[in-house]
């Protein structure tokens, strides 16, 4: 195990802190999630570290609970995307032929419409529940995971050891899980980070547009939507989620970069 560079270590620590804050939100938050505790847009004070929001709820509390919702949805959507995307991508690479063609062309088609536009089209007829949001985001993102995992797996399937496994008469599932997946893991792990961040930005955007997480549930995009009127009066309440989103996504990016660099230099070493 090589030493972790400073940037990646810092990124890892901050990412872990965000996830811990999301998990233990009820313990950390000073007030209740939807509890009105003060006046409208009170400035920061000992009682309210970041001030209060548009109807007098504690902003720090909203941010912590908001992070919980946002991170949970982004994580769930990323898991769906990777479950579906890698499974189909590896399958397409192993099967080849018309199955590969059909899947690849379908993914090309879905990717030819911008993800946000497609999500808006679908959300105009479906109820906006958390489950629907996770599925819509996850399936739309799975197209990108599919492309990556298929591209990586196609390179691996022509390797001698996969050929050897085939000649030994191993079953297809064994070849996918024991030969291809372990060797495709590093680019996929790096992609996992990027997809997660994309998920955070995506759900925040949907909530900001009023089509994501519904009030009174808190989430980072929703906090911006609720407090945007304050900006014109110079009240920065709507801008705090920016700090949270930027900190989280830069941290995850640093970790993802490091994972990719570490493993690609490893490959270079092996020749």
């Amino acid at each position: 195990m090589r030493r972790i560079p400073l940037g990646a270590a810092l990124g890892l620590i901050i990412t872990v802190l965000f996830f811990l804050a999301a998990i233990f939100a009820p313990l950390l938050a000073p007030y209740g999630m939807a509890e009105v505790v003060g006046g409208v847009w009170e400035p920061a004070s000992d009682k309210f570290w970041l001030g209060t929001d548009n109807i007098g709820r504690d902003l720090l509390t909203r941010l912590i609970y908001g992070g919980r919702t946002t991170i949970f949805i982004a994580t769930a959507a990323t898991l769906v995307a990777f479950g579906v995307g890698t499974a189909l991508g590896l399958l397409a690479a192993v099967l080849g032929g018309w199955a590969d063609q059909a899947l690849s062309r379908f993914v090309d088609l879905v990717m030819s419409i911008p993800a946000l536009i497609f999500a808006l089209v679908v959300l105009s007829v479906t109820p906006t529940t958390v489950l629907v949001l996770v599925l819509v985001m996850g399936l739309l993102e799975s197209t990108r995971v599919f492309r990556l995992s298929r591209a990586v797996a196609v390179d691996i399937t022509v390797m001698d050891y996969v050929e050897a496994a085939r000649l030994r008469g191993e079953r297809r599932t064994w070849i996918i899980f024991r030969e291809i997946l372990p060797n495709a893991l590093s680019p996929l792990v790096s992609e996992l980070g990027l997809r997660f961040i994309f998920g955070v930005l995506f759900i925040s955007t949907l909530s900001f547009l009023g089509l994501g997480v519904q009030p009174p549930q808190a989430d980072w995009g929703g906090i911006v939507k609720e407090n945007k009127e304050g900006i014109v009066y110079g009240i920065p309440a709507a801008l705090y989620p920016a700090v949270a989103i930027a900190a989280l996504s830069i941290s995850v990016n640093l970790v993802a970069d490091w994972v990719l660099n570490r493993t690609s230099s490893l490959k270079g070493g092996r020749g």
Binding site: T205, G221, V224
Partner: peptide
Amino acid sequence: SISLPEFL
């Protein structure tokens, strides 16, 4: 700038 959503 790519770490922040457009609306923010």
